[in-house]
Design a protein around this nucleic acid. Sequence first.
DNA 1: ATTACTGTACCGTCTGGTCGGCATAGAAAA
DNA 2: TTTTCTATGCCGACCAGACGGTACAGTAAT
Lengths: 173, 173
Amino acid sequence: MLDAAEAVVVEHGAVRLTLDAVAREAGVSKGGVMYHFPSKNALLEALVARAIERSHAAREAQLGKLPGAPGSALHAYVRASINDPLHNDRVSSALLSVVASDPKLMSPVREFFAQRLPAISEGVPFDRAALVHLATEGLWLMELFRVSPFNKTQRSRIKQLLATLAAEGGTVP
Amino acid sequence: MLDAAEAVVVEHGAVRLTLDAVAREAGVSKGGVMYHFPSKNALLEALVARAIERSHAAREAQLGKLPGAPGSALHAYVRASINDPLHNDRVSSALLSVVASDPKLMSPVREFFAQRLPAISEGVPFDRAALVHLATEGLWLMELFRVSPFNKTQRSRIKQLLATLAAEGGTVP
DNA sequence: ATTACTGTACCGTCTGGTCGGCATAGAAAA
DNA sequence: TTTTCTATGCCGACCAGACGGTACAGTAAT
């Protein structure tokens, strides 16, 4: 059911995320959807929760591949965010614009961000963590909204730069 | 008329930007609104155009206050973005989530970003321009969506850091 | 027969958009 | 000066469609 909802979101955008559309995509009737989710907001909450969980999992996965040096949490975060646009990214991006207009739906997202900051800042000077975090998030958000002015070459150079900064800091020319 | 639309957007969010609401806010009837804007999209286009123009103007204003050293364009951009949330910011933020779902409405925004990058990169190494740009945009977008995990103290420190990096580069610890 | 679920039909509301008409101000005509 | 015409700006009633949500009958498995 959630898969169907995500498919709708990815294909037609979150504005078109209607109960009928989800039902059609899932091969059931609207009554069927309403049986599982008492309201549309409940469906959105579930989608948000899943997107958050997946982001978390992606970061953990990257963390597992890195040695436990200080700053590896930040590095893992960057690598998880930077990878080629995943399915989850497209879901998140489309969801964000709808969820943003409802504070109640946003609060888990806010909490996610609030908890992530200390996690990725571990063992790293504040300036570096903040800068890398913001730049990574900026890149992510700009690609989400498809307003990134960078071409492919520039993007990969930026990713390299972010990875280096995350891992060991450095000088900005 | 546009002022009324912006007022609605700022007060109730862009999802509530309905022709009736604009009419009510402007003290006219819906017919009156439709007289000036043939469709809702036309209204949105005008709002987007105005928001873009204001962002542009804010950057130019900052640029005028700075000496013409290389990198001053980047510095001016950072200062314009970093200032306390203006009216335009609130309009932009609310608009973004609605406009994002319509590629046709997004294209002027994309163009704006595409033209801004070379403008602010002038006379500055790519790495610095990209990093500062992304971090600034990340900060702006995260505050827009109210997901910024930074407190007031951290925010002002970040702003200081961004301004310094924009003006003269530096070392990230 | 009970449970767990599905499908159909329907309702109320909201929204963008249409349409014909009204008022007023000024130009043109008398 | 008075009358007629016209363009502008706006009003109010209405429509069609979409949407979230409800009610209820039906069904298949246990």
